[in-house]
Design a protein around this nucleic acid. Sequence first.
RNA 1: GGUUCCGUGGCCGAGUGGCUAGGCUGAGCUCUGCAAAAGCUCCUACAGCGGUUCGAAUCCGCUCGGAACCUCCA
Length: 404
Amino acid sequence: MKLYEQFPISLTNSLSGKKEVFQPINPGHVGMYVCGPTVYSDVHLGNVRTFLTFDIISRYFRHLGYKVRYVRNITDVGHLENDADEGEDKIAKKARLEQLEPMEVVKNYTEGFHEVLRQFNMLPPSIEPTATAHIVEQIEITKRLIEKGLAYEVNGSVYFDVPKYNEAHDYGILSGRKIEDLMESGRKLDSQDEKRNKVDFALWKKASPAHIMRWPSPWGDGFPGWHIECTVMSTKYLGETFDIHGGGMDLKFPHHECEIAQAVGANGKDPVHYWLHSNMLTVNGQKMSKSLGNSFLPRELFAGTHSLLDKGYSPMTVRFFMLQSHYSSTLDFSNEAMQSAEKGFKKLAQALAYIKKVEVPKASVASELTTEMNRMAADCYTSMSDDFNSAKVSAVLFEMSARL
RNA sequence: GGUUCCGUGGCCGAGUGGCUAGGCUGAGCUCUGCAAAAGCUCCUACAGCGGUUCGAAUCCGCUCGGAACCUCCA
């Protein structure tokens, strides 16, 4: 009997908002896609939390005996500064500011990203595709969407027609948004806007003469939009329908909503069975983000050099700190919380070192203790299988260490 | 304004109808020549007001407070 049969996993599906029992499409196999970083700057601690969440989840699936294909992309193009129609490509901007080739920017920050994940003891994904390596596929799917009448070209750019899509499908299915509300609120469609509807989004953007990152397409030189890469890469490596799609809460809308629309529009079927969203890391109750200026980098945390920090903490302490909360809750960062985690982690590490040293004569151990340990071990599995409740597991681990 | 979600003891943070979460801090104790380390014990909460129920932190309603998303964001 496989472990996953003994401890079936249930997980909170953002699509339904409910906890569901995990049922893989192919028995014994799990296909999982997670939105990776856009490599135009250093990853900060908030980013780390998301990748750590899915590191744990993929490890746990494997541990239970599933064969996992874990795909996590690197976004090395796209993502404009402001919105659909204005602004500069983030990577191109960084390249201009630092007087580098875009590919140099991409390489720098990709390596930095990998280095950080290594420091936090995360395993690499099975496949790590990049957006620029899949331009052809992105053009193909864009063409298909035009053929199906769900996208239109204007001046060398191609947009997804959301209201058209919404006629036969439900655009707000993931985020609970209603298209009428979206049409009313927010930014107005100004006269120079190319989009037919304000809710439409770009699949392909025309490159201005100054734009460095550009590829030829049926619509002229340009670059892909920001949602299409994930649709292309996930379905290419995991199939038109796959098990799990993960990412940060802040990607739920519009990014993941658009992914669904593109995939359903192009392939005619729902791409993902289970959507998983990890919650934000906060500082003083506010989301850690670059634009708010309250983010800090892993190396600042290790060294304790950031002004918000009393002292430095090791990567494993940080990892433990994050695992003490549930991935779906916001986690507030503070010096007190880190100190608490440091002490707790040390305790568990000592207990583990002790176990490794002590020789346990199998049969002669007090059976009462053995029974109890087995019960607690099973508790760990039950908790992890219950929506990956690592916080609960840590409590059991402390209980175990107290019995040694 | 709309969507989603949250409000647990000094702090952090699990818990989704009945049973002690856990960690950190603090207090006391044990051990010890003193100290350190370690162990044990104690501090028993669920924003407020109603409702459902034999029974609610847990379900429903309202009020208050907070967050994320609606622009790039993990």
